[in-house]
Design a protein around this nucleic acid. Sequence first.
DNA 1: CACTAATCTGACCGATCGGTCAGCCTCTGA
DNA 2: TCAGAGGCTGACCGATCGGTCAGATTAGTG
Lengths: 183, 183
Amino acid sequence: MARTTPQTHGEILAAAARRFAATGYRGTSLQDIATEVGCSKAAVLYHFAHKEAILTELMAPAIEVLRSLDSRIAGQPEPAAAQQVAAEGFVDLAVRFRSEIALLRGEYPELLQQPGFAHIQQISERLIDALAGRSERASDRITALVLLAGIAETCGQFADVSDRELGDALLALLRRALQPPTR
Amino acid sequence: MARTTPQTHGEILAAAARRFAATGYRGTSLQDIATEVGCSKAAVLYHFAHKEAILTELMAPAIEVLRSLDSRIAGQPEPAAAQQVAAEGFVDLAVRFRSEIALLRGEYPELLQQPGFAHIQQISERLIDALAGRSERASDRITALVLLAGIAETCGQFADVSDRELGDALLALLRRALQPPTR
DNA sequence: CACTAATCTGACCGATCGGTCAGCCTCTGA
DNA sequence: TCAGAGGCTGACCGATCGGTCAGATTAGTG
């Protein structure tokens, strides 16, 4: 039967977020989402053109913040300043959107190649470059990549930690781990 | 036609390693592997009981080393010593088996729940505990988990870096990032 | 009332997946 | 020479996937 109120769109989004977080994007079928909402799979595809569109809409706010961080970093001519902006901005992003980031669950490589996410990869590279203090040394780039990937991969697991505490811990970790760019 | 030499088993393993590294475990079908080898899908399933058996055999050496590291850590009564053993052992493991670790590519959660890998999760938890200096503080556990996940997730991407250089960089990162357990 | 547009359903589609099976080669040893 | 074992193939299976489609139901509007 048709819903009395047309709020199904939002319910689908919420259900998809729960399922993606539990079993990943690829591990969640449209039928899973439909079952959780209590509607048919066809209803899900009535509200969203395809499966990827659900993910795109879920990630939109986080991507918008990531974009603005990217341009803020680009505006820093000094490597040390860019590094600090990148560290603080990324930690803030990871903490605020940890549930959104978590639901990607290691499926970045495939998902980032889809048309809607092509630019994310370039932003990530610039973020790593800034975190590495714009250094070309292998050890600096390894450090930056390990920290970025580690935070992205784990931030969703600390649901029981407050934003404040998680952010402080991550920022302190970055400060300890990142070499000052000039030395 | 039948192969003149029965070396197909090894060829399948090598092909599977390449495909898993390129597109992940779930992203690789038995047909993909068969095509790369140049045999039929049925031939793959003649040499391996099921798809998971290929992965199990590929990971066996790394898992064996991980196990021995786990027991070495367990034999350290002092948190500081356990932390050092865990850091050095894990870096050595990540560097030596980086290609094997890489081919899991973020599919840990699902794969570790399969029967053949059940104990890996417990070992991981003990490893994190040791890296965190056996501390209960949230910040220590966050640090340990971020570093562990970051290294596991990225070590396969540094194919152009020598074992020595990668190991030194990772170990230096761990030393900088890990708080001394007593303070 | 009639008409329209939005919402939703069940049935269906083609593709792909991991896995099974009967049987065909080829080699080896008695 | 021939039986048997190891190695392998093509055809096939049931399940599941994302996605399509015609039509039913509902709510709003004149």
